[in-house]
Write a protein that binds this DNA or RNA. Structure first.
Lengths: 250, 250
DNA sequence: CATCTGGGTTGATCTACATCAAGGTTGTCG
DNA sequence: CGACAACCTTGATGTAGATCAACCCAGATG
């Protein structure tokens, strides 16, 4: 059980009791000059399912997720949708230097965001190289995640995709550390079957079938529709197709 | 024919006759203090097919592609491979703050890279915020490209994938502007069928079949195995599944 | 309490792409 | 020049996952 435990621990290492993890560009975990951010920040809440901005809409702010989960998606003319970003607490939204959103941003669960108006934020970036550096680091992390995701989309089977998604959520969701005991862990799935299918490049029927199949084989235990227990994290990891020491570089 | 012409022109707007385009972090297009980079840079050449570094290997440099094409790929234990990065001249390789490569880096064609030893480069970054800013911009561009790519991998059909790849290469390859005349353009495919299949998440047989099918329908004209002419760029664009004004944001 | 609605499951069938297999073309090297 | 090695094409067949369709369940709502 050791790897499961350790690989989860490594992710969320600083600011244990602060809702904004250490990678966030947010005043809470900062000190120094960054208190200036305090003056330009404000909070917004969204309900599960609500759209924050549509692709192409103008967006005059950047933001950091405080609680809840948001997604970035692209839609083709005929309605096919692909999720391209999954934003957990501390993740950053928006691109300095661009006035419109390139993606649909949607709240997957009830969500609170810490927003900064774009112009003052960009001014701050110029004055405070520190922020740019953090942003670079975060963007590089996101790029790595996107590339991992590309491997999933391009080459993994449906079963591997589902297993991967479950381990990804397990690793990234800070809340579930509490429920953890010798390799068993449980959490509430923050995504509907449909959202999962958009993440994975599958249909929701296939997602449902594969979840059932993992359940029947005892790799996961479900309680209601959303609550999931993983009795043996390592066993699930073996289903992901990743090499055992997987590129968990963040 | 206008869109084809215009969408190609926008990409490569500065430094028309410099092999390093404006996005590059390279001394050639810089002036000022960046001449310091001159002192820590050196060139390396690779033959088509040669591996630059393997995933996991230590990598003590960052680099910028000068000529040729390099790829980043991930490999699963059982050999399934997915390309996750396609690097054209001016594109950047390597991640500041990381000592090993996360991906296999391969030269797809004969390639020259402009390398900077990692340590001095990182020192420079600290002293010169300008470089960090550029790197951030480039990384954000790459992230956008990766997300476009995710849509392709997750939701497009084989035919749409092939058409998309051809338009992507056409748009990004500076050399072919020369051959352009009222919407017709031609270029040498820099990738083998196998490399294309790794890019697209397909098998090489499927790539071959779809190329044949596009050829039979007159969407492309081939000369030998690699030289491709696109008689009507807009018509090919319609096969990509992208909305007509597609997110060409760079 | 009945009904409606938004998720979720499961079955039957179809199909796009993978897989397996054979053969073609081009270039290189003894 | 012959033969080998990359690379590419095409055909026959198999299958994972899509599609179409029916039904289930829990919570909300009048």
């Amino acid at each position: 059980m050791t790897r499961a435990t350790s690989s989860i621990k490594t992710y969320n290492q600083e600011c244990a009791d602060c809702p904004i993890r250490h990678r966030a560009v947010c005043a809470r975990c900062e000190s120094d000059e960054l208190e200036q951010l305090e003056q330009i920040k404000y909070y917004r809440s969204f309900e599960a399912g609500q759209t924050v901005v549509w692709a192409g809409d103008s967006m005059d702010f950047v933001a950091s997720v405080v609680t809840g989960i948001a997604t970035l998606s692209q839609t083709m003319e005929d309605g096919r949708r692909q999720m391209v970003g999954l934003l957990l607490p501390s993740d950053f939204i928006g691109r300095p230097g661009r006035g419109t959103s390139a993606y649909d941003v949607t709240a997957a669960t009830d969500t609170v965001m810490c927003c900064f108006r774009k112009k003052p934020f960009e001014d701050m970036m110029l004055r405070t190289p520190h922020i740019g550096q953090r942003l670079l680091e975060m963007t590089l992390d996101e790029l790595d995640a996107a590339r991992e995701w590309m491997l999933l989309l391009g080459r993994k089977t449906a079963r591997e995709k589902i297993s991967s998604l479950l381990t990804i959520i397990a690793r990234r969701d800070a809340s579930l550390q509490l429920n953890m005991a010798d390799g068993e862990l449980s959490f509430d799935l923050p995504l509907t079957r449909e959202a999962m299918s958009e993440y994975l490049g599958l249909t929701l029927e296939t997602v449902s079938r594969q979840m059932s199949s993992l359940r029947k084989e005892g790799l996961i235990v479900t309680e209601g529709k959303r609550h999931i227990t993983i009795p043996d994290f390592d066993r699930l990891l073996e289903e992901t197709g990743d090499d055992s020491d997987g590129g968990f570089l963040v």
